[in-house]
Design a protein around this nucleic acid. Structure first.
Lengths: 221, 221
DNA sequence: AAACAAATTTAAGTATACTTAAAATAAAAA
DNA sequence: TTTTTATTTTAAGTATACTTAAATTTGTTT
């Protein structure tokens, strides 16, 4: 079994590749995990010996098939815990990530299946993110786009709220920005990269960071 | 925060002291945790620097008040998880210990309170063992005694089944030995330390190991 | 294309949690 | 009481996961 440090490295690499589509070198993983790049380089070398990632000096990192399988296994546990903590124990949106981040590493496949079964094998977590299935398959492309990329004068439904801090969720909640909400894009401000939308008969100006944490879709789910 | 290794050391020391009442030296903890005694001595010295245990060379180990508080905090999480996994997710008696053993170390006090609240602040876990409260108080002496110490011709109710392996629970289940069952002690065999009891109109002969995992009480709970 | 800046890698060192092997001490037996 | 046995402790060494500091490589600018 892999250590917590290895699991977090693999998980972060998966996230950068699939969610952000970035060219990932040890430095960016280091920044994300709060370690030095030398530590990340070291870990990259070790994980490549275990055939979990592809690593060539100065090149971008890539997960191997078995590394990707491992990432999806952890991601499944993370999202199952988030769903469980929210739906069953009533933890709020900003609390679930913090707790799931710890529990995911100490969860057997056996327990993950019990949780999934209890929840009725959900396909989405409370953020609207898809939960990989037990075989490690996930559909990352549900047709949704970041609000920052949405077209002016079009209507959309909110499909994902991918934040983890209290401020973000407090703002979303108080502005009727929840999964399923209907919104309209009014205007893109090219200078400061803000975006103006209309929700619930209210105009809102959002900055780019928020506009990338909110994902939208043309059709209702 | 303390490491998993430290937490397991502290927990084991607590267990030996309160549950088994033994004179605990590094060697016995080492045997329990599957490490060498030199590793245990080392850990004992480190934990005594943190004022979690009292340690003098060649003497028995003792928890300090803050060490005991820490042990009870972990024990609370362990027993809350066991209760939760059994009652909510339907895991069987031999599965809950294994999973709780992992989860207990990654559970915040915050999450423990949520679990406790969800369960209605239970006082006993599925084994019949008391759950320490959030302040770290527990009543270890509920008046029950190991079946091995019970008196001939007396009637008792089963109050605790403190095992963790499948065989034990399979045997208990198939013999109607569950918490609350009424039993009668027929005879103690002094030679081989077996004990004969009557449950559900059936005579059973138990060996000493089993007779110490089963705790009994005169009154119904 | 040379020079500078930014990032990555290597090298050396630390803390944790172990290991094995030898030395010291305590407990038990002769 | 001495000897033997068992246990504990110390010493030295390993793997993991980091750190800082220096060297190397890459990317960018002029």
């Amino acid at each position: 079994m892999e250590s917590i440090a290895s699991e977090n490295f693999i998980k972060t690499l998966y996230h950068f590749h699939h969610v952000q589509g970035k060219d990932t070198k040890p430095g960016s993983i280091a920044r994300e995990l709060g370690i030095t790049s030398s530590a990340a380089t070291d870990m990259a070398r070790k994980l490549s010996l275990k055939k979990l990632i592809q690593y060539e000096k100065y090149k971008a990192l890539k997960l191997t098939p078995s590394g990707e399988k491992m990432a999806l296994n952890i991601l499944r546990k993370h999202r199952l815990w988030e769903t469980f903590l929210h739906q069953v124990l009533g933890l709020s949106m900003h609390e679930i990530h913090r707790e799931a981040e710890l529990l995911e590493h100490q969860t057997s496949d056996f327990l993950a299946e019990k949780i999934s079964l209890y929840l009725g094998n959900p396909e989405k977590d409370p953020h609207g993110d898809p939960i990989p299935n037990a075989k490690g398959w996930v559909n990352n492309d549900d047709g949704s786009i970041p609000l920052a990329m949405a077209h002016v004068n079009h209507h959309y439904f909110i499909s994902r709220l991918s934040g983890s801090d209290k401020e973000f969720f407090d703002f979303c909640h108080s502005s009727h920005l929840i999964i399923g909400s209907l919104i309209r894009v009014n205007k893109h401000y090219t200078i400061n990269q803000m975006i103006e939308i209309e929700v619930n008969n209210t105009r809102l100006i959002l900055n780019k960071v928020f506009a990338q944490m909110i994902h939208v879709k043309r059709e209702k789910e």
